[in-house]
Each structure stands twice: as C-alpha cells, then as structure tokens.
Amino acid sequence: MLYREALNRALDEVMSADDSVVTLGEDVGLYGGSFRVTEGLVEKYGEKRVIDTPIAELSIVGNAVGMAIGGLRPVAELMTGNFSLLAFDQIINHMAKLHYMSNGKIILPMVVRFPQGVSRQLAAQHSESYEQMLSAVPGLRVLSVNDVNYAYHALKYAILSDDPVVFIEHELLYNKKGEVDFAQKLDPFQARIAKEGSDITIVSYLKMVDDVMLAVPEIEEALGCSCEVIDLCSLNPIDYETLIESIQKTSRLVMVEEDHKTGGYGAQIISWAAEEMFYALDAPPLRLAGEDVPVPYNRSLELSSIPTPESIAQDIIAWGKNNEL
C-alpha cells in the first residue's frame, strides 16, 4: 500500500463510520486531490461531505473551524504548506486557541492536512516547511509521520481526536510503499524506533528518516558502530521518554531535518538535550539541516540546499571521527 493510499483508506473508513466527518479543500472532490489522497471519496460520500473549495486558504481553514464549532469533524486539505500562510490567522488565532479562550466550552475536533517540503524543482514558493512555526503554537497537535502504517493509524487518530491537529505530510512520501497492520493499536504521539542501535542516536522526521536510513549502512561501516534511528512522528507533543532512553544508551545525538537550520525545529531537540541530557552526552550533538536560503529551483542547487543521504553519511562520519567514535 502506498502512503497516499493509507491516508485515503483512513479517511474513507472514518467517513464511512461517522457522518460528521467531512473533508474540504482545493480539488479534493472532482479531481481527487492534488496528491490523490481524497480519490474516490466524492463519488462515495457526495459533494456535501467532500467539498471543493475556492482558491482561498483562509476560508478553507476558517470554514473548517466553523464546522468544528458546529459539531462536525472537518479534515481540511491545504494544497501545499506555502499556501497555508494565508490561513495562519485561522490556524493560530482560532483553531489553536478557541478551546482555551472559551474556557473549554468550544471543542475543535478538526484536522488540517498539510503537504510540504522540498519536492522536485517546485522552487522557493512551493518548497517550504513550517513545522517550526506550527509546533510553537500551544493548543495544536502536530503530527508528521514517515511510516505508511503510521500514516494510516495517525490520520484516523487525528480525525477522531477532539484536539485540533495539523497533520504534516511530505510531498515525496505519497508514493512510499509499506505494509499496514490494520488491527494494530498504536499511539501516534509515541516516537517510532526505525532502527535499533547502540552508539549514535539519530533523530529525524518525515522524509529525512528515509534519507537517514539510506545513509546508515555507510556510517556504520565507516565508523564501525551501530546507529539508532528515531522517527519522532509527533512534533508536538514530543516523546522525550524514547529520546532519553536512547541517548542514555548511546551518549551521542544527531538531529537531521530538511528545513532551514536557523530557528528550525531540530533546535528544540538539541536545546532540550543540552539542558536535560548534558551529563549523558559523550560528544557535542550534531545538527544537520537545510541551508538558510530560499530553496533553489535548479536541481543541483536544490539538492545541495538540503541534507541528502550522501551528505548525511559524510557529515556524520566526519563528526564521528572527530569524536573518536
């Protein structure tokens, strides 16, 4: 099953079980979604529950907020994260805060699906990542799953949860293949150990987890060590328990993210480790992230502006050698 098919299946199952679940966004109906996530849903559930909206992001999220207040469980799709900037007032001031501002009287059981990231030559205005902003908003849950099985379970969980959830998807993950264990019960707020190891803890999320996994064999061979790879899954809240356990075992921490380095999400993980895990660290933490430049259109420049399996391997090996690993 593909990642997008897992999301589609999750939506389909929840919509079939619960009439209050609706989905809305640009091209989610007739066209089946720009990434085919909502394919076949309008035929099944009709235009009242699978709603094609105008190109107006503020109104997509605003409508979803209104629907949620009114008792529905809306799943809003934004075509790409960059367009979401127009909707940030609704996301931050309303979706995230109304529950708090109403002293808990209003609940917002809604999801905003959020495709983002560096795809292929979509240039600076279509390649951004916004987890650093979203995870800094109290009141929002931010999920960012890499794994196909998790995609299915986490989206279902997000829709059925009474909390407002931003569900971040990476545009290059939609065609990732994987098995889904439909019967499994899993907690999407718990980090996933993508690979166990004993000497380096490599933390990542979304597509970068796959790039790290591609780099790991080379790192392990060059340094003669074993890497533990952790897929955060949830960016807010953060599963610190899993991180503590891993860092206590390995004494070494590497954070890998695609987004620009300055002010990026990984800074949270590293600063937490410096505060809370200082005496467990046997080497300075390493943070690999994108360059502080608008993402270039040119393919070579685009690739050199973000971590790739090759650069991840090269940088971790250099760091490991400098730290006598």
């Binding site: 393919r299 070579s300 690739l303 050199s304 790739t308 090759e310």
Partner: peptide, 8 residues
C-alpha cells in the same frame, strides 16, 4: 537524484 556535485 544525482550525487551532490563536489562544489557544494
């Protein structure tokens, strides 16, 4: 995806 050019 091409290997990263050396210049990077």
């Amino acid at each position: 995806p091409q290997p990263k050019p050396a210049v990077t």
